[in-house]
Amino acid sequence: MSDGATTHQAGSGGTPPAGGPGGEPRHFRRIFTVWISISVVADLLFWFLVGPHIPPGRMTSAAGGAQFDFNVLFVIALPVIIGVWTYMAYALSTWRKSRVPGLPLSGDRARGHFGVQTAWMAITSTVVIGLFVFGTVELIVPAGAGGGEGPNPIWTPTSKTILPIQVIAQQWKFTYRYPTFGGFETSQLILPDNTTIAFHVTSLDVIHDFWAYQLGIKADANPQQDNVAFTTTDQVGSFTVRCDELCGLWHGAMYNYGKVVTKSAFESWATRTRAQLAANTKNLPPFAWTYDPSANGAGGGYYPSNVDHFSKVETYGAQRAKV
């Protein structure tokens, strides 16, 4: 943010050490020229060449949002870094001991400069407040931006229907329950394309973290808590799931892979798996948003018994208590 200092013209900060016959060069004009040209080039190169490849890609709305936000922040950060580096490089090369004439000891005498200080504070504050507004909009509009929102999400997706999927983490494995398909539990995570999905993340033992990398989803799995994260799938393909909160011995090996498939392929997979696992499902604890690991009563997984495969969006937000 050294551009704040551009308001400070040479010579106004104190008595310059004996300058050449041509007077003091206009330091800030030089620095500003170098800074603006490098920054513009670097930003354009980044935005068009690197930006589209920044992870986590565009597989879901959350991932696309994360990529866009990262790129915006990067485009703001680059000029800041380049500004400080340009200024430092200029200062270190121009005002090094061997090049500064004058008194044997002294440099400039300025102990401060009202304009520079005010401009610096104004510019940094503006940038920071701007970043906050941008970040908040990007958090609220996409319904939590793929992050875990706790049991009572206040920002919900705009789509009419949502596929709920429960992520159950335990040392050291993720399993997934599909409550709207009879509550079967499997270690495969298959998602339909072009669908809004609510991941209900919970844990049976310690804190884990469900990180579906390419989906742009990250939500802590806490024991006895239902942590909800939303996203909408945009592309088919496979993705990685890793545990992202240190959970003990095999934390490093706690990962698996999932797939986004077309809606019809998903329906047929879910129906088939439901039938295949029916005998297992009967022995599972009854479906619930959280589980007490000491409870071992089997009751099947039929929750809610008579809903569509895609539950209404009203199940979330203020309506949550009715479920």
Binding site: A5, G13, P17, M88, A91, W95, V100, L105, G107, A110
Partner: peptide, 8 residues
């Protein structure tokens, strides 16, 4: 950075 300005 201000301290570097016109320093020795």
């Amino acid at each position: 950075l201000g301290t570097l300005y016109k320093a020795k």
